[in-house]
Structures are given as structure tokens and as C-alpha cells.
Design a protein around this nucleic acid. Structure first.
Lengths: 161, 161
DNA sequence: TTCAGTGCAAAGGATTTGCAACACC
DNA sequence: GGTGTTGCAAATCCTTTGCACTGAA
């Protein structure tokens, strides 16, 4: 089992971000869509976001970067494209309200431990778990395309406090 | 690994439903809340619901039972109490919109395989999976209180079609 | 030049809340 | 009889849509 250093996903390097943008451009082009200035700014902000973010979070970043009047609707319209291009992926589905996303581009698959007390998120990857999932799917003649796996509870610190 | 017969959860027997109601009554009493006629009707409809249901689904059942003007707000207000009493539990979190629930009272824990094509849901339970989760949690000194685990993909029938 | 993209405001859907009337214990 | 509960409608929250205008290829 691997774990990201200090459980905080590392930011993509500039050159990786550029590659992500190229990927996006290519996906958009294939669909006769355009990579506008605003769209690119949204993609860059998402790719460099460290951790899990909501639309609101992304908007804050964009505004702080001075992307004039970054608009909610524009972000909502861009996200599905970023997902399609594999730049980000939805996550943290068990949070009651609102949706969250995280960088997916050139990151390995992982699942989450979520502390219900402090909200801290620990990422983990277990090949044994993945294998077990495949095994179960096979038993039902089911082909898995994706999965949601979150372990909710209390982290060490919150139990101690 | 066990699986429910034909992957459809069996309905609770009348006497089990009654026990569920008693459990609810006791939980409510402990909090100085009341088991009203409407509340009981909601609980019974939930406990006898076969499969996964939304608030809307539950409302339909209530209306068909003639529970006069079963109201949305009332159901929304009752659900958290039913969850607290362990009668039902939220589930199917990966469905985009709206929330779903299922009976939890005296049912063994299970997770779900969800067909993205036909929406069919297969329940499964894997002790190996549970053990692996505990192992991962231990590794991070994390105590698991609950988890969300859904495998999304395509069922045999939909792949064939 | 020609579609696609954007801002804005209004629409939508799901869930929640305020309040007066009502029902349990 | 005093609280908690209900119905109803209005309010919220998050997300989507329609439309006229702007911008990328």
C-alpha cells in the first residue's frame, strides 16, 4: 500500500500542467470546441489546486488571480469538459451537499479516509482492495468502470483530543 | 461472500417491523420526542419498502396507503430520526441528484454494484473487504465508523444487449 | 466570418424553515 | 395542558438554462 507524502497530494509541476492543458485542447478540438482564455484559466486553477475543491473554492482562486468576473456558470460549464479530458474527477461524494473535485491528471488512483470530526482527508491506495473489487465484480459478471470508496470515521488526532 | 436471494432484499416480517417501531419509539422517547401517527406510518412504509427509495418514493407509498396528505416536509423531518434509530440508512450516494435510502434494521451490512446502464443494483458482502478496510484504517490510526462503497459499471445483461 | 463561449439573470429541483393549527403524552 | 408535530408556503442552496453579446479559429 502506498500513501502520498504526508497525505497531501503534491501539486503538479508547471510542465505537467502545460501537458494537461494540451490534453484539454486536444479533447476540445476533437469536439469542435474551443480552448478560451477563461477555460484555460479554469483548467490551470483546477490542476494546481492542492486537495479537494468545490466550485466555490475554484471561483475564489480565479478571482484572486484577477480573472475578471470569473463566473459561476462558466465554471459549471467547464467542469464536465475537464472531467472528460481526465484533468479532474469528482470525489468526496459522501459529503451531504455540494460536489467536490480533485486533480486526476497524471495522478494514480486512490481512495479516501475522511475524518468526520475535523474533515481531514487521508488518501490511500490498496492494490489488494482493487483486486478484491475485481474479484467481486467477476462473480456477478459485472464490469466495473469506476467506484466510490470512502472510509468515514475519526482520525488519530480527533480521537485523542 | 454472501448475497441476498436474487439480489433483492427481502421484506421484513410484520413482527420485525413492529420491533423496529418499538426501537424508534424508544429512541424518540429518550429524546423527549413523540411517535406520532404520521411518523409511525412513515416508519412502517420505510421498513417495508423493498429496495432503495427516495423521499418521493416513500411519499407515493404513503399516499397510496391513504395517509391523508402525507407531506414532503414531514418525511424530510422524519428521515433523520429513522436513521438515528437505525431503521434506515442513506445509500446510493453516487447517484447525481437526490438522496436514496434503504432499510437497515436487522439487515446485515452490504455494499452495492450499480449498473450505470439499467440502474439495477446488486448487493454484496465481502468479509475480506471489510477486513481489508479495517487493516487500512489501522495503518493510519483511524477508526472507521462507516463507509461508502459502490462499484459502478455494467451488468451482464446490459453488456450483452 | 462564423460558431462557440461568456456573463447575467432567471429558472429548476431538492431540501429546509417559519408559523399557526393540531395531536400526543 | 403543554410540548412536540404537521401542513403549507416561502425561503435556501446548488446547479442549469436562455439569451444577447464577445471572442477564438
Amino acid at each position: 500500500m502506498r500513501t502520498s507524502r504526508k497525505n497531501v497530494p503534491s501539486k503538479l509541476k508547471d510542465q505537467d500542467v502545460d501537458r494537461g492543458i494540451e490534453r484539454l485542447r486536444s479533447v476540445l478540438h476533437a469536439r469542435s470546441l474551443k480552448l478560451s482564455t477563461v477555460r484555460e484559466a479554469i483548467a490551470r486553477s483546477a490542476l494546481t489546486y492542492s486537495g479537494h475543491f468545490s466550485v466555490e473554492d475554484l471561483l475564489s482562486v480565479l478571482r484572486s488571480k484577477g480573472v475578471s468576473g470569473a463566473h459561476m456558470a462558466t465554471v459549471y460549464r467547464a467542469l464536465p469538459l475537464l472531467i472528460e479530458a481526465g484533468l479532474i474527477q469528482p470525489t468526496m461524494l459522501s459529503r451531504g451537499t455540494g460536489h467536490f473535485y480533485e486533480v486526476a491528471f497524471e495522478r494514480e488512483h486512490h481512495d479516501h479516509l475522511v475524518c468526520k470530526s475535523c474533515g481531514d482527508v487521508i488518501e490511500f491506495h490498496s492494490e489488494a482492495m482493487e483486486a478484491l473489487q475485481r474479484e467481486i465484480a467477476a462473480r456477478y459478471d459485472f464490469s466495473i468502470e469506476e467506484h466510490v470508496h470512502e472510509l468515514l470515521g475519526r482520525c488519530k488526532r480527533c480521537r485523542a483530543g
